[in-house]
């Protein structure tokens, strides 16, 4: 018997999830944002599922989707099990345009950190309590979220400076227990001072 047929009733009673009607070829459940973290902890740790690997976090924009009514965005988590090869589950959360907020799972899966940053960058969905919600693929001066359906593909945005990583580095140092005493400044050096470099004490 398919593992999902035994797993789903458990999830249904515990977390009140629904089957995703659009998943004809694999297994997907729709969950509420409020139970998302508990659901994912259960999926990760419980013997019956053991979804140890988070493969992807996908954002979807349903603006203008055929015959569709409901919240505009969805975030989809793709899981796979390593101890039981061949078992995969997707978890989908709908996000409405008004609140745009999903709890982060970056403390459960370290890789979710970057993947959530990507969804934020492309769709503007905020991940609550995310440690470092910055843009990842687009540059710092980018305005808007390019993968939303109402962002025209041709709207180009020039970058005038460079993107500075010093604040991120200091954050990383602090997370490792270092205390930054003296903060440096990263600047864009002009023609005359290129020999002094872009980091200034």
């Amino acid at each position: 018997m398919n593992f999902f047929e035994t797993l789903f009733p458990v999830l249904e009673t515990k977390f009140n999830v629904e089957k995703d009607a659009s998943a004809h070829w694999d297994h997907s459940v729709i969950a509420k944002a409020s139970v998302l973290r508990d659901l994912i902890i259960f999926l990760r740790d419980d013997e019956s599922s053991k979804m140890e690997m988070l493969l992807d976090v996908v954002g979807i924009d349903y603006l203008g989707f055929q015959d569709y009514e409901g919240p505009r965005f969805a975030v989809e988590y793709v899981f796979k099990s390593i101890s039981h090869p061949g078992r995969r589950v997707r978890v989908k959360v709908f996000v409405s345009e008004q609140d745009l907020e999903v709890p982060t799972i970056s403390d459960l899966y370290p890789i979710a950190n970057w993947q959530e940053r990507e969804v934020y960058d492309q769709y503007g969905i905020l991940f609550k309590d995310h440690p470092d919600l910055r843009r990842i693929l687009n540059h710092v001066e980018f305005e808007g979220h390019p993968l939303r359906k109402d962002y025209p593909a041709h709207r180009r945005q020039w970058l005038s400076t460079n993107d500075f990583l010093l604040p991120a580095l200091e954050k990383r140092l602090e997370s490792k227990g270092y205390k930054v005493v003296q903060h440096s400044k990263e600047v864009l050096p002009n023609e005359d001072e290129y020999l002094t470099g872009s980091i200034q004490e």
Partner: peptide, 16 residues
């Protein structure tokens, strides 16, 4: 001691 990575320099908009 510490390092941070940055990507996106070749973000060519495949998905769009």
């Amino acid at each position: 001691v510490a390092t941070v990575g940055e990507i996106g320099y070749l973000h060519r908009g495949f998905e769009k």
